[in-house]
């Protein structure tokens, strides 16, 4: 048995034991997302435009992560709407920044790994980079959107007469609480995977100018910064949508 199959079995077993029926759904959502990501790579290899492929894949991933991870339909709907808006905004932000910063493809530090390859493969590495950046932020925004939406709904349920400014204030509070931790998750997740790179940089005696300008370092930093912006935006938009929803609901009752 391969190491990956064994680890997958262990994860599935633990998720079912700890989570019961919800654990099965959660495990399935991970499997579905994996299949989607794999399909994205195959489709991009096949020559379909990477940005469009990842845009549609992104919608599916958000849907799966939110609806399969959260059982309350009302909060799921709001979270899904908010993440879709953020997905579109992030695309508009990432496309020009990735283009101007020229961080596509591979860095010269990777040459050992890629020297066996002929790089003239007719793929659009800039578009591939954009899809990488967009897709890697989706998990974090889905999680943040669910947390804010369900947290706010709880607040509204406990205090039915709550005013809109109070809702926005609570959204800010909840957002602040989850933001610190989400930043940590992103930070450790991304820099953990770049550990080898950092050791290499130290061995190369990189100077400050290198950190501010080298392709690989700027690329990794921008990835973290993009995710941070996405998380902040999703907190704003989710809070706004919850407030708007509440307002519409109240007007309906009034009439």
């Amino acid at each position: 048995m391969s190491a990956i199959s064994l680890l997958t079995l262990i994860l599935a077993f633990l998720m079912v034991v700890v989570g019961g029926r919800k654990g099965i759904t959660a495990f399935l959502s991970v499997v579905f997302n994996f299949v989607i990501l794999f399909t994205v790579v195959i489709l991009i290899t096949g020559g379909l435009p990477p940005i469009w492929v990842s845009f549609f894949a992104g919608i599916c991933i958000l849907g799966i992560t939110i609806y399969m991870g959260n059982s309350d339909e009302k909060t799921s709907n709001i979270a899904f709407k908010a993440t879709l808006i953020v997905l579109a905004v992030m695309l508009l932000l990432i496309i020009p920044f990735d283009h101007f910063a020229q961080i596509k493809g591979f860095a010269s530090e990777q040459s050992e790994t890629i020297e066996a390859f002929d790089l003239l493969i007719g793929a659009d590495f800039e578009a591939i980079l954009i899809s990488t950046t967009v897709l890697s932020t989706l998990g974090a925004i889905a999680e943040a959107a669910i947390a804010v939406a369900s947290g706010l709904n709880e607040v509204i349920e406990q205090k039915p007469g709550i005013t809109l400014p109070e809702v926005f204030k609570s959204g800010k509070m909840i957002g602040f609480q989850i933001m610190g931790m989400t930043f940590n998750t992103l930070f450790f997740g991304m820099f953990g995977s770049d550990l080898a790179l950092f050791i290499l940089l130290y061995k190369l005696d990189a100077d400050f100018s290198y950190y501010l300008n080298s392709k690989i370092f700027v690329k990794e930093c921008l990835a973290v910064l993009f995710s941070s912006v996405a998380v902040i935006l999703v907190i704003w938009i989710t809070t706004y949508l919850v407030g708007k929803n509440l307002n519409e609901h109240r007007q309906k009752i009034d009439n």
Partner: peptide, 14 residues
């Protein structure tokens, strides 16, 4: 249980 799925997905995507 409610945060387990989304969190594992965050890491998978990264």
């Amino acid at each position: 249980r409610s945060i387990m799925g989304p969190l594992v997905n965050v890491l998978l995507l990264i």
